[in-house]
Design a protein around this nucleic acid. Structure first.
Length: 279
DNA sequence: GTCGATGTTATCAA
DNA sequence: TTTGATAACATCGA
């Protein structure tokens, strides 16, 4: 579920409300959430205060005053919620971080794919989960983007969702970006012309920026830090629209399987190859 | 009740 | 390097 815009929305909605709060206790309700690490390790956060929340790719980093950071991945169905302590626990609550006053931060995750891990803040960039990530798509200039693209091969969609190429793009936004760029998702990346590369770079910026502005996409599970839905689902142009008319040309949106993922595109607007000639 | 699909990603084989 | 299949799991809808 949560891709860059959703994680960014969580961080923005929660950050200001968490800064300065003291961590009163940490309770792990689902041990595998920690992967290999020991449950007691998380107790090192106790007593520290929260410096802030950050995002890197699809990951959340909670920095504490004692030099430790909690790394979180929401995977498909993870949610990070700030709520009153007395609020009834959801069925899928996996972690509770009680804060100084009347509130606590809860990690909920029905499918149990998400995980958390404690790391040293100063070593954050070296953590395996972050080290392998490509650059932030919204902090990348066009020239550098074209350079990164230069020696890559494979299908466009596979590359877009590859976290070591760019960090944060997942299935929904990959499809939307391909549409915005008018490129077929199975386009061979090595055959993109310079013009198409620029169009792609620009499409990435447009789609992600708009999605962040709309506070993410809530198709099913996504909620921000206060339990609110996002709004970008109203602006999706291909994802989840199989069989419906393309808003631009009226052709039926098609769906195929690519890189193991459901892939949506307009067969008329997104033709393979040579599209740089016409634009 | 059953089947297939779901926004993520690690791992393995080819 | 890259792809495809698979697995982790619960829920939803047909």
């Amino acid at each position: 579920m949560p891709e860059l815009p959703e994680v960014e929305t969580v961080v923005r909605s929660l950050g200001p409300r968490l800064i300065g709060q003291r961590i009163e206790s940490v309770r792990v309700l689902f041990r595998p959430l920690l992967r290999q690490s020991h449950p007691l390790a998380l107790q090192a956060l106790k007593g520290a205060r929260i410096l802030g929340l950050r995002r890197r790719g699809k990951m959340v980093l909670l920095d504490a005053t004692n030099g430790l950071s909690l790394l979180l991945h929401l995977k498909m169905t993870g949610r990070l919620l700030l709520c009153p302590k007395e609020k009834t626990l959801g069925k899928h609550t996996r972690l509770i971080i009680a804060l100084g006053d009347e509130e606590e931060l809860r990690f909920e995750d029905s499918r149990k794919f998400g995980f958390v891990r404690l790391i040293k803040t100063e070593k954050a960039e070296e953590a395996a989960e972050l080290k392998s990530l490509g650059p932030e798509p919204l902090e990348l200039g066009m020239k550098r983007f074209c350079e990164l693209l230069h020696h890559r091969r494979g299908r466009l969609k596979s590359l877009l969702i590859n976290q070591s190429f760019l960090a944060g793009i997942g299935n929904i936004y990959a499809d939307e970006i391909c549409f915005e760029a008018r490129l077929h998702p199975s386009t061979e990346v090595s055959r993109l012309g310079h013009r198409e590369k620029r169009r792609l770079w620009s499409a990435i910026r447009t789609v992600l920026t708009n999605a962040v502005a709309a506070r993410g996409t809530s198709i099913r599970d996504f909620r921000d830090g206060e339990g609110r839905e996002g709004g970008f689902q109203a602006f999706l142009r291909v994802y989840g629209r199989e069989g419906e008319a393309c808003f631009f040309c009226g052709a039926r949106i098609k769906r195929l399987r690519l890189a193991g993922r459901s892939t949506h595109f307009c067969p008329r607007c997104q033709r393979k190859g040579r599209s740089s000639v016409s634009s």
